[in-house]
Design a protein around this nucleic acid. Structure first.
Lengths: 327, 327
DNA sequence: TAAATTTGTGTAAACGGTTACAGATGAGTG
DNA sequence: CACTCATCTGTAACCGTTTACACAAATTTA
């Protein structure tokens, strides 16, 4: 059993007071060159590492930040994590990731645990959270992917407009009967994307074909089967996210439908999956890395008391034309 | 600015000592029914939540456990995370995930941060770690996916034997010229899988065709192009992991090769991707959820001082025959 | 050269909990 | 009825840091 040295032991070893050791560690306050060397030697000799729990207790901050995401299965997040770390590690923060299973209770549980541990800030991706849940929390928060409330800074894209763009891409490609596989009813972004589809169809006086795909591959596949069974002449599908686009594509492959010649598909999000399948899927790509970077920067600024003027950042997306649409 | 109540304030409000409040919180020691109610009311009135930092400092444990994984992009991990949480949350632990980018330095950094924060235990998936790095750490550790050292408990599969099984599956399907797309040289599991391939080929006196795919889709795709360019009559590929199998499949699709009629493919790991593509990929599936659950249980046992007899668990895998092999 | 300032160091009080210990009360026992 | 023992509560030390404050020595300033 190896003993972990404390600041007291370092002080005794170096023949100084704990205050002096603390000064050396934090490079703060006056300390003579000679004393400093003595202390540094003691630290090395005893293999001392400051205890962050004690430090956090006194300072009421931990140099840790957390993020809560609904489902790390979603290939959206790895990139996000990398972006956030690239920003925060450089400033001495450690980041921890938590998986909420898209479950409000779990989200609040994690939020509470974080507060109890003096986590300095949190980046949250959540479909259920609103500002009332954050009101009596002391932690700076940045919302990603969705706006919680005017008072809580956010980093998002314009789901409605970008979804319109997706649908318009199909229209411009000459598609006549365009269908939509929608995401869950209770997720606002999913509703915005659906509304965009409906509005475009309405404006063009075209019929609307919607089937619910729950943001998942398997269910989207089934939804596609249903759709194509009822309406055989559908020649394009806009799916509410990329995962469902993969499902739709699989359904077409199984039915022997040539994509994109007979039917075109466009997804939404820009996750990696769209490039692993054949044909590769055309999609509206969110600048995930950039969004993560921005969110992290905003959070750090909040933590350090530098409030930013612009608090609700909306990023542009990129239409990535690949192999499931003709141009 | 809302004030966060401390135990002292609760004590004053309830007209008792802090010790009594502590007893109520922890349901430990004697406390009169009536007093308990008083305290509970005070807790509710002040919206008190115990501060875990202070608690950790005294108890030298935090009720937090961490895992370090090389790359959350790897679809292997989400399932693992879920498994671990299912076990640990039930016992009051909070889990935090860290991404090491397959980088030893980052792994050690996280390990240190965890130690500094009295994290109670860690599950590590790492290609670089060995016991010397863990020796002067006080934290119970369980290794997943790879054995670090005899002294460090682990949960793994038998990479060599299971890889043999994969190759034998191709042999039994009547494949004549079987190639291998290998993973990185410095990863032991990747080497074991490669060795298994070589040994089977050797035993059957067949030629060996190996191309390096670095565990990645894009590079595996290129490796497949190279391979098929040099040896046109290859009729089967065993890839060192599933991600590379997806790459190999894409290469075949692009070359107009019919899978599985002209060429069969088998992967390794059992990640979700293998089911998102068409045809779905045959693979050796690791029981990821079970492995995570076991690892978590072992870790918790270690944390609670209940050492288990069996410290190196080797799980069986399942050969999932899908659409890229004939039977 | 006295006063003011800078430099260097130590003492002790926080931070917010837990728990060993002591003391008080009341019930049970021989 | 004295004694033991379970029940209930409070006091204070402790966990490992940081930092306000005090004090002394060295240096600068007038």
């Amino acid at each position: 059993m190896i003993h972990i040295a404390t600041i007291k032991e370092v002080a005794k070893y170096a023949n100084v007071s704990v205050a002096t050791v603390s000064r050396v560690i934090n490079k703060k306050g006056y300390v003579q060159k000679e004393t400093q060397t003595k202390v540094e030697e003691a630290i090395k000799a005893l293999n001392y590492r400051p205890n962050n729990v004690a430090r956090s207790l006194f300072k009421k901050q931990s140099k840790m930040i957390g993020y809560i995401v609904p489902d790390i299965t979603n290939p959206f997040f790895p990139q996000l994590v990398r972006a956030v770390e690239d920003v925060t590690v450089a400033q001495g923060y450690t980041t921890f990731l938590c998986n909420s299973d898209d479950n409000l209770e779990k989200e609040l549980m994690y939020l509470n645990k974080m507060a109890e541990n003096y986590i300095d800030g949190v980046i949250i991706v959540s479909n259920h959270m609103n500002e009332s849940h954050l009101a009596n929390l002391q932690i700076p928060v940045v919302a990603l992917d969705r706006v919680f409330h005017e008072s809580i800074p956010s980093v998002t894209i314009d789901n409605y407009q970008e979804a319109r763009r997706a649908v318009m891409h199909l229209v411009e490609n000459g598609c006549e009967k365009i269908a939509h596989i929608s995401g869950p009813e209770n997720i606002i972004n999913s509703q915005l994307r659906k509304k965009a589809y409906q509005d475009v169809m309405m404006a063009l006086e075209r019929p609307v074909y919607i089937s619910e795909g729950h943001y998942q591959m398997k269910t989207a596949q089934e939804a596609t089967f249903r759709l194509l069974h009822e309406q055989k002449d559908i020649d394009a599908i806009f799916t509410g996210n990329d995962v469902m686009a993969v499902g739709a594509l699989k359904a077409c492959t199984k039915l022997g439908i040539n994509v994109p010649k007979e039917l075109q598909i466009i997804g939404f999000d820009g996750i990696e999956w769209t490039e692993t399948v054949s044909p590769e899927i055309t999609t509206i790509a969110q600048p995930i890395y950039e969004m993560g970077k921005k969110a992290a920067t905003m959070l750090l600024n909040r933590i350090n008391g530098k409030e930013e003027g612009q608090d609700h950042i909306v990023f542009p997306t990129e239409l990535k034309i690949r192999e499931t649409t003709t141009h």
